[in-house]
Amino acid sequence: MLEPNRKTRHVVNQAVEELQLRPIESGSWDDAVARAGREPVGIVVADWEAMVSDVDTSDSIRLAHRFKSAMLRLRSVRESAQSYAPRVILTAGATSRERYEQAHAAAITAGVDAFLGPEDLRLSTILESYLLRLVGELPPHASSAAHVADAFELPAVHLRHAESGRWDASRIAKALGVPLKTLAQSLGAKYSTVHKTPHAEALQSALAPFGNVLAMLAQIYNDDQRAIAAWLQTPQRQLGGLTPVAALCEPGRAAAVEQWAAGLWMGDVG
């Protein structure tokens, strides 16, 4: 996801959360392409101006050429990594009508899968419909572990329901040191539903980032609960000054925090 506009990013996060997809945020198109070469990427949602920031947008032909070149870069690196081409949705959350129409025409000419303007992005439902359709069109082998740590064996029995073996929201909330109601809000679920069945199948995808972060911390700190609690409550520069537990509990942000924590766990970042 490459979306600098705050309002549009909120809509995108809502759509991604509703469909229980895992977002990977990028700061530039170069970064998005680089990440696509390292991680399983099926769909890219990007602001059109951020995608072609170095091009004279008044020249429709040149703009279309730049869109196509940018997509070819993305698809070539992804195809070499996984043998399928990711789909591309471009957004125009804040732009004039003239610039929108010009960019829209150029994007469609270049073969972009969808181009959504300001009216389309007032609510997340339109974006959700495109994401749902494009996810369904991806080949079966495009699917992969939904979360960073899913490919590894991490001890997490204390975070799972004793009978079902699924992630248990009550246990995770206790381990995080937050009320179950707070965790339910972070999941976008009704508290009454989570309280009644904290290990429900429908909650598993949303709970996975929380469970994986706690499981990685248990391994990093040799299950020292004091050390884990201290880490969770220590403000982090990389999280904009938030504590990890506060960042995790921001709706739509848990997967990104999980990725960052996985870097710490693997020793990639300090």
Score class of each variant (00 low, 15 high):
Val135Thr: 11
Asp113Glu: 14
Arg9Gln: 11
Glu49Lys: 13
Ser205Val: 14
Val33Met: 05
Ser76Gly: 05
Arg38Lys: 13
Gln259Phe: 08
Val257Met: 08
Glu49Arg: 14
Ser96His: 03
Ala149Glu: 01
Pro118Ala: 14
Ala202Val: 09
Lys190Ala: 15
Ala32Ser: 11
Glu163Val: 14
Gln20Leu: 11
Ser26Phe: 03
Tyr100Glu: 02
Ala103Gln: 04
Pro244Asp: 04
Ala149Gly: 14
Asn212Cys: 00
Asp268Thr: 08
Ala256Leu: 13
Met216Cys: 07
Gly241Leu: 10
Ala34Lys: 14
Gln20Met: 10
Asp168Leu: 04
Ala105Gly: 09
Ala262Tyr: 13
Ala202Gln: 12
Leu242Gln: 15
Ala149Arg: 01
Gly270Val: 09
Pro179Cys: 08
Ile89Arg: 06
Glu119Tyr: 12
Val257Ala: 04
Ser60Glu: 11
Leu242Thr: 02
Ala227Asp: 11
Ser143Lys: 10
Gly188Ile: 04
Lys190Cys: 00
Ala81Gly: 07
Glu119Leu: 10
Gly27Val: 10
Gln20Asp: 14
Val194Arg: 06
Trp231His: 08
Asp150Ser: 15
His10Cys: 04
Trp265Ile: 03
Ala202Thr: 12
Asn5Lys: 06
Arg171Gly: 01
Arg122Lys: 15
Leu74Ala: 08
His65Pro: 00
Ala162Tyr: 11
Val245Phe: 07
Gly177Asn: 05
Ser164Phe: 07
Gln219Ser: 10
Ala261Gln: 02
Arg62Lys: 13
Val55His: 02
Arg38Ser: 14
Thr182His: 09
Ala32Leu: 15
Thr182Pro: 00
Arg6Val: 13
Thr57Lys: 12
Ile220Lys: 11
Ser69Met: 03
Ala156Ile: 00
Gln102His: 13
Leu183Val: 06
Asp224His: 12
Trp265Pro: 05
Ala32Val: 05
Ala227Phe: 00
Asn212Ile: 02
Gln185His: 13
Thr8Glu: 05
Leu131Glu: 01
Val41Ala: 04
Ala254Lys: 01
Gly241Asp: 08
Asp31Trp: 00
Ala254Ser: 15
Ala184Gln: 02
Ser164Asn: 07
Ser26Glu: 02
Ile108Leu: 15
Pro86Ser: 08
Gly27Ala: 13
Leu239His: 04
Phe210Glu: 04
Val213Ala: 01
Ala145Lys: 05
Leu183Tyr: 03
Leu123Phe: 13
Glu258Trp: 03
Gln219Ala: 08
Ala189Thr: 00
Val194Leu: 06
Ala208Leu: 02
Thr182Ala: 14
Thr57Pro: 01
Ala103Trp: 06
Ser192Ala: 14
Ala92Leu: 07
Ala46Pro: 10
Met1Glu: 07
